[in-house]
Structure formats: C-alpha cells, structure tokens
Design a protein around this nucleic acid. Sequence first.
DNA 1: GGTCTCCTAACAAACGGTCGTTTGGCCCAG
DNA 2: CTGGGCCAAACGACCGTTTGTTAGGAGACC
Lengths: 224, 224
Amino acid sequence: MPRTVETLPAPDRVAPEEPEGRSAPRAAGPVPSPRRAELVNAAARLFSERGYHGTSMQHLGRALGLQRGSLYAHIGSKEDLLFDVVDGGADRFLSMARRAASSGGPAAVRLRALLVGHVNTAAQHLDAATVFLNEWRYLSPTPRAEIQAKRDLYEGLVRRIISDGIASGEFSPGVDAAMAGRLVLSAGNWIYTWYRPDGAMSAAAIGMELSDLILDGLTKEGPP
Amino acid sequence: MPRTVETLPAPDRVAPEEPEGRSAPRAAGPVPSPRRAELVNAAARLFSERGYHGTSMQHLGRALGLQRGSLYAHIGSKEDLLFDVVDGGADRFLSMARRAASSGGPAAVRLRALLVGHVNTAAQHLDAATVFLNEWRYLSPTPRAEIQAKRDLYEGLVRRIISDGIASGEFSPGVDAAMAGRLVLSAGNWIYTWYRPDGAMSAAAIGMELSDLILDGLTKEGPP
DNA sequence: GGTCTCCTAACAAACGGTCGTTTGGCCCAG
DNA sequence: CTGGGCCAAACGACCGTTTGTTAGGAGACC
C-alpha cells in the first residue's frame, strides 16, 4: 500500500466540468462538420505518431478513405489541421487548470488537483497532448504566438498556486516558485512519453503519486 | 540566499572525465573526417530547430556551403546523420550517469550528481540533447532498438540509485522507485524545452535546485 | 624536376517519386 | 436544380539519392 492516498485529501473531482453561460447559443463560428472532426482526430493520431512533417496529406486521406485532394473540401491547409489539434489540446489543459486553480482551499490541494487533472487530460487525449507538446513549434509565427500565450497562461496558473502556498506558509519559504513550477510542468509534460493506457497504473493514480513526491519536497523544511 | 547549497554536499565534480585505457591506440573504426564532424554538428542544430523530417539535404548542404548531392561523399544516408546525432547524445548521457552512479557515497549524493550532470550535459550539447529526446523515434527499427537499449540502461541507473536509497533507509520506505525515477527523468528531460544558455541561471544551479526539490520529497517522512 | 596515376571532394544534372494544393467535372441528397 | 462532397488529374516545387565528370593534391617512378 503506497502512502500516496494518505498524505493529502484527494481533489475528488475539481468542478462539474463547466456549465458556463455560453452553452445554448453557441454564438460564433460555423458548426464543425462531423467529417472535419474526423479529420482532426485522424490528424491528432497521425501527427503524434509520425510528426507533422512526417505526415502527408496522402496519409491523412487514406485514414478517412479519401483522396488527398478531397480533404481540401474541409480544410484550408495542412497547417489548419495542426492548429486545430494543438489549440484543442491547449484549451483542454487550460480549462482544466483554471478549474483547479480557482477551486479554493489550501495551495497543496489546488496543486494536486492541477497535476492530477493534467495527467488525466493527457491520458484521455494522448494524441492531442503529444502533438500539443511536440509539434506546436512548427506552426507559423502568428498561430504559434496564440498557442504560446495559452502556454504562458498555464504556467502562470501553476506558479501562482505555488506562490500562494509560500505566502500562506504552507510551503517552505526557501522554495523557488519558478523552479518548482517547472518541476510540476516537467512531471506533467513528460508523461506522454511513457504513459500507455494499458499500463499498470491509472492516470489518476500516477497523478496522485507524482503529487505526493512533489508536495513533500515543497512542504519539507530544510535540515536544521 | 536559497537554501539550495545547504541541504546536501555538492557533487563537486563527479569524476575526472575518464582517462580509460583506450586512449592512444584508438583501435577500431576509421578516423572520422573533420568534414563529417562538421556535418553531424550542422545536423544536430538543424534537426533540433526544424525536426528531422523538416530538414532537407538542401538545408544541410547550405549549412556547409555544399550542394546537397555532395554530402553523400561523407554519409550513406540522411538517417545516418540522425543516428550519429542521437547516438552521440545517448553516449554522453550514459557515460555521465555511469560516473555518477558508481561514485560511491550516499544515494542522495549520487542522485544529485546524476541530475546535475544531466542538466549540465543537456546544456552543453543542447542541440544534440534535443534531437536525442525528440527525434530518435524516427529512426528505423534496428538503430532505434540500439538507442532504446541505452535509454533503458540510463533509466536503470537512476532507478538503482533510488532503490539503494530506500534499502539503506536514506529515502522514505513508501517511495515508489519507478515513479520517483520517472520524476527525475522528467525534470531532466524537459530541461531542453526551456533552458537557454543566456538565461539567468547556470545549468549547474538549475541542477542543484531541482535536486533539492526532489531529494526533499524523497527523504521526507509522510505526515503523522 | 617532370609527369603519370591515383584519390578525394566537390559540382551539375538527372532520377523517380512525393509534396501540398488547385481545378474541373460528376453525382446525389436536399 | 442547387450545392456540398468527392474523384481524377494536373500543377510546380521539392524530396533523397545516384551518376558522370572535374579540379586539385599526393606520391611514385623515370
């Protein structure tokens, strides 16, 4: 029995998955055709397996049973697909993190909620997460800046939780919030390289164990 | 003043960089031509910036002031270049880790030496490290298996240090060695995405801070 | 010293193929 | 009868690699 589940209360579901005003109207943007969604899914899978530059329109067409030229009935360019996959991944991580960060309670609880949520999100959309982390840099400057902004927001949320914890005395005052934030992001972002859905541990369990290791390091006082 | 340097003794140079018997004879393999070394360096840089599939022989040729066909006087194929870069990166990490792991002393000291060495190695050869971590999966099966073996060796060294620490009572018995090893690898392997040589912190300082955070988590007893 | 031969490294050109994208026409569901 | 979805074909560009050739230097021999 690992000590995991005892060190801190579990986040037990961070929030009920956003009711958020804008549900019925669906104001902006054309309703995405189901065929286009299929295409984006296939792109997530293929880009994550073969890389963006290693995936051709031929590959994508074959995945849907179409000729490569036919794909242009649904997209403007190959890069549109990359952006859709990457942006979708960014939004999932970001909205999860916002829920975790704003959930109130001790910083340790919020940080755990964020890390567990991160691992869960990566696990549930492993392809998109892989593309989000690996291939976003191949976007051309304008869309890449858009993604960079979301990454910065995400990192800011993590760092804020840690600073809060230091300010409130929960975390050791010697902790460098920037470095601790990077440690959390490292643990979360490296997951996609080794997590496999058929592995021994569930994503939630992994998130809990990582939280334990990291939170112990943050709360421990230095030696006398 | 961060508490960093006080928690544990510094590794203060792990070992004197291997004199190792085989220095004069240089027994096997043809002496690599200087031009070929230039080419591998350029490949490391370009592959790290644009990805393997995003780099053409044209790009590589331009970097050396040659026609793309002329490169085949020095290499057998584009993949040879990828392998040289990746394998060189793997060897650097592995030999550093072997020195750290076999340096004797407490597990905490060895783990710190390994992590500091890891960050230093990644920083000194940032391009090769990036390619090693990002592009190695595009190798074809046989060379990829060779790299995989070295990665497994590396992870084994990390995990062994942690198990030693648990067995000796240095680390908390509740620690999951596999997960803690992955946390160390995550911290070290994510570095290349954010470390920049002109940044505020030196690689060694980063390694020390990360070691502090992780070691505190490993040595701490759970709450009563 | 001359010159002949070999070797290396490079070039220009071409190979067959694939790239991402565009176009024009056909089919069928609304 | 209109229009979205698809195909077949073509576009020009570029891909990784191979080929035939050449300039220049290093020795070997006369």
